[in-house]
């Protein structure tokens, strides 16, 4: 996939399909270690050890309509292509945690993409699910939690169009503030 946000959208769909009511998306950029870590953790129905093992196999899927599901395989490929790896941990009845690492400034690291739009789509499209997004760059962190948003919004539902715009802009501005690296810093070579 061209952008990490598209991978995230895809992985979170797995969480939603597994009936998760809580989805936590965490991104950490460690400039010193040249490492980007992406975690998606849910409280969905989880997977058996056998399924957990096979889930990154491109010829495996839990869908019945199609023979291959590629979401996690593609994420694994994207991570390994730039010196990282993918780890899947799951417990039946408890939930699943996906962790992927990427070389932050590796030439082939996919750009972050539009996290604002991605989160707006996820949150507004699933108003009953609690989402948490945390994005840290070294010491600084941007955080968005639907639980806190609901307290502020009161009777306004999360699927209102104005909420969509608010989320998109808040994330975009928040990420700018903490200087999130949208793509590897190859351009700086030229300066």
């Amino acid at each position: 996939m061209l952008e990490l946000s598209l991978h995230i959208l895809d992985i979170v769909q797995n969480s939603l399909a597994a009936q998760a009511s809580q989805v936590e998306i965490r991104i950490r950029e460690d400039l010193g270690k040249d490492l980007l870590t992406l975690e998606v953790e849910d409280n969905g129905r989880g997977m058996s050890p056998e399924l957990t093992r096979r889930v990154t196999d491109p010829f495996y899927t839990s869908r019945t309509t199609r023979e291959v599901g590629l979401g996690l395989s593609l994420l694994k490929l994207a991570a390994e292509r730039c010196g990282g790896r993918l780890e899947v941990r799951s417990q039946e009845g408890k939930g699943t945690k996906i962790s992927a690492t990427f070389g932050l400034d590796h030439f082939d690291r996919a750009p972050l993409g539009d996290m604002g739009e991605t989160l707006a789509v996820l949150i507004c499209g699933n108003p009953g699910v609690n989402f948490l997004y945390e994005h840290g760059v070294d010491g600084q962190t941007y955080r968005l939690a639907t639980r806190e948003m609901r307290e502020i919004l009161g009777p306004v539902s999360l699927d209102e169009p104005s909420v969509h715009d608010f989320i998109r802009q808040d994330v975009q501005q928040g990420l700018k503030k903490i200087k999130a690296a949208s793509f590897p810093k190859i351009m700086e070579v030229l300066r």
Binding site: L2, F107, P111, S182, F183, P184, I186, M187, V189, L190
Partner: peptide, 10 residues
């Protein structure tokens, strides 16, 4: 098909 800033760098 890539469109981000780094294609210019390359």
């Amino acid at each position: 098909r890539q469109t981000h800033l780094n294609i210019v760098a390359i």
